[in-house]
């Protein structure tokens, strides 16, 4: 552990202070990312995965958002305490981001070429001409056919998959070390999704980028990730290598998720659904946030919140019974039901 990771998040707390109370979006988040590595942050809506991305990028709406504690270290330096000028030099240059909905992330009244070239003009001080040339190169690199003719087109003139490619072009323009992709393919059709994921993977290998892939799709994660952090109610519930997590989940939530998805390569039996709903962020259950829905929960789970601890070598789980879940030696309680 002598090398500093590219990006490290330590005990991050983010809350939203609203009129109807304080919503704790992130409650003590920890993870690290190395160069060339793909970390998937997996979670359902409201689990805090997008807030995590926004906090790292420094684009969280504050107020109502408020960083209540923790550190985000980029190459060992805390970016939360940096001044805005310094932070700005990081954003887009060293750490950049792709959003889910390309149509609303791109500026509708500017040509796409202009929007890509802007990166070079603002951060590298290039003149218009050379910046435009760079933009065309990038459009070719992300696989937009006829890039030279389309550099002056507006976002609405492109299809969903092409728009997402333009966003990727903007994000990788300055060869960032860290790329955060927030649900990059959720709005796309399957055949286009496959194209975009393939492109992202190629670019990552080419540039040795650290990729943070935020998604709810267990299929996409299995295809591209190296390690996974499963989030629930603002916490990491389980973190491990991708093969480990799918083969031997050590947290009841992950186990439940894997069992509840229909698979394309299996015929339909009844799905084992996770009962109940994710907790409200303004009204967290005591102890383990998953305890109201967990088939294995005991009194201990209601009184004490489990820490993220190893269940096996390199496999972390925030469950009191992580070893038993990991080994598959735990039985659901009799009265366990929705």
């Amino acid at each position: 552990m002598t090398t500093t990771p590219l990006l490290e998040v330590k005990d991050l707390h983010v809350e939203f202070r609203t009129k109807s109370g304080v919503a704790q979006a992130i409650n003590g988040l920890n993870f690290s990312l190395n160069a060339g590595e793909t970390l998937a942050i997996l979670g359902e809506s409201g689990s805090g995965k997008s807030v995590t991305a926004q906090t790292i990028m420094g684009i969280l709406d504050m107020p109502p958002g408020h960083i209540a504690g923790g550190q985000i270290l980029y190459r060992g330096e805390d970016i939360l305490t940096m001044n805005e000028t310094k932070r700005r030099k990081l954003r887009g240059v060293n750490i950049s981001m792709i959003f889910q909905d390309a149509l609303s992330a791109l500026n509708p009244v500017l040509p796409v070429g202009w929007q890509i070239a802007e990166m070079f003009r603002v951060h590298r001080g290039m003149k218009r001409g050379p910046a435009k040339k760079k933009a065309i190169e990038l459009m070719q690199r992300v696989g937009i056919p006829g890039a030279e003719g389309r550099v002056g087109d507006y976002p609405h003139q492109f299809s969903g998959g092409m728009r997402q490619r333009i966003m990727i072009a903007i994000a990788i323009a300055l060869d960032p070390d860290v790329l955060i992709a927030d649900e990059p393919t959720t709005a796309l059709d399957v055949t286009v999704q496959a194209q975009v994921m393939r492109l992202l993977k190629e670019l990552q290998v080419e540039n040795n980028m650290g990729l943070i892939l935020i998604t709810h799709d267990l299929g996409v994660v299995a295809d591209v990730a190296d390690k996974i952090a499963v989030m629930y109610a603002g916490r990491v519930m389980e973190a491990a290598d991708v093969y480990e997590i799918y083969a031997k989940p050590a947290h009841p939530y992950t186990k439940g998720l894997l069992e509840s998805i229909p698979r394309i390569d299996a015929e339909g039996d009844r799905l084992s659904a996770i009962p109940g709903l994710p907790p409200s962020l303004t009204d967290m259950p005591s102890g383990c946030p998953f305890n109201p829905r967990c088939p294995y929960a005991t009194d201990l789970c209601v009184s004490d919140r489990p820490e993220l601890l190893p269940a096996a070598e390199g496999h972390y789980s925030a469950c009191h019974y992580r070893e038993d879940v990991y080994q598959g030696t735990i039985e659901p309680r009799q009265e366990a039901q929705a």
Binding site: Q193, G219, D265
Partner: peptide, 15 residues
């Protein structure tokens, strides 16, 4: 065929 092959399967061992 293309549609089916493009769907990601939640099993990293098939990668």
């Amino acid at each position: 065929q293309a549609l089916l092959s493009a769907v990601p399967v939640p099993d990293p061992t098939l990668r």
